[in-house]
Amino acid sequence: MSKRAVVLIVDDEVSNIEILSAALEEQHEICFATSGREALEVARSISPDLVLLDVMMPDMDGYEVCRRIKADPLLADIPVIFTTALGDQEAEVRGLEIGAIDYVTKPISPVIVQARVRNHLEMKQMRDQLAALAVTDALTGLGNRRKMETILNQEVMRLARTEANLSVLILDIDFFKRFNDSYGHTAGDRCIAMVGAALARAVRRAADLAVRYGGEEFACLLPETSHDEAMEVASNIRERVRALGIPHSQSEAAPHVTVSVGVATATCFNGADPMSWIKAADEQLYIAKKAGRNGVAGRIFGRAELQELHAA
């Protein structure tokens, strides 16, 4: 694997953590927790690639930790391997039923632990690659609508914990149907790909997401971004598309390809409907188009307004 995988070791016995760390630290990044509650906190903060989880712990046993990991949408895909001295089949079945992927019995055999961790990390990498293909737009290389909606759900849930801001941009290529009719679908595809590349260059932070939302429509997800910052990103996108200089003789906005952008910013809260941000940004996009296109419209939305959009 090109990047060292992060393995979270959870055990209330420090000696067991030391044995497992010694077996795995040469190939993997190791972090650890000595209780179930600490394990959940660490998992939520670093999102490890795999968890080695002790079954018998005093405050919260491994079964409950595994159950909570699998119930959390942000953690559910992380493989969990139980480490246990329990040898009965019933205990193993119980663990597998709540989502564990494997068992390693104590006393620990370093060779077996290394092999099982390696195998499960390789399988996870393959699953992640297949999942990435399913949420990637083939024409632009950006994420697709499915990815946008998945990440949006996760980010609203995550940011609600601290009531942080989330900004969403929706943008359209102006008069794109006329462009296709005038220049042909091959040129239309090239135009979409070039706009997608300009969008990717404008949205540069690791936490940000740019996607092709569908047809000639794109979207951006900007976590922990103020409204002023989001408006700057939107203006940058608009300017980058203008600078492409793609001729568009049938546009009423300019002699070249342009975009209209809608921006919505709101504070995340528990129970918020993630799609309300999309609806809010789409509302602002309509305003930008009504104003003559080739422009940006946006505003801050309050909790009550988001709830109204959800109910609409």
Rank of each mutant, 00 (worst) to 15 (best):
V117P: 13
Y63G: 09
L130V: 14
A22E: 14
V42I: 15
F218Q: 06
I17M: 03
V259D: 04
S47K: 04
V42S: 03
F218Y: 15
A100R: 10
D189P: 04
A210P: 02
A311Y: 12
M1P: 10
R201D: 01
L139M: 12
H28Q: 11
A100D: 09
K279N: 14
A198L: 06
F82T: 00
R67G: 08
H185N: 14
N165I: 02
H310N: 13
V93W: 11
E38H: 13
K3C: 01
M157T: 12
L221R: 01
V117G: 07
L20D: 06
P79Q: 00
A207C: 02
R178T: 09
V211R: 01
L52W: 12
A312K: 10
V195H: 05
S167Y: 01
L74T: 14
V203R: 02
Q250N: 10
N270A: 15
A254Y: 13
D208T: 05
C31A: 07
V261G: 08
D77R: 09
M56S: 04
L96K: 04
S35K: 03
A132R: 11
E38K: 11
G99A: 14
A291W: 04
A198S: 05
A243M: 11
D54P: 00
N153S: 10
V135R: 06
L20W: 02
K70G: 15
H185R: 11
A288K: 07
F175A: 07
P255E: 12
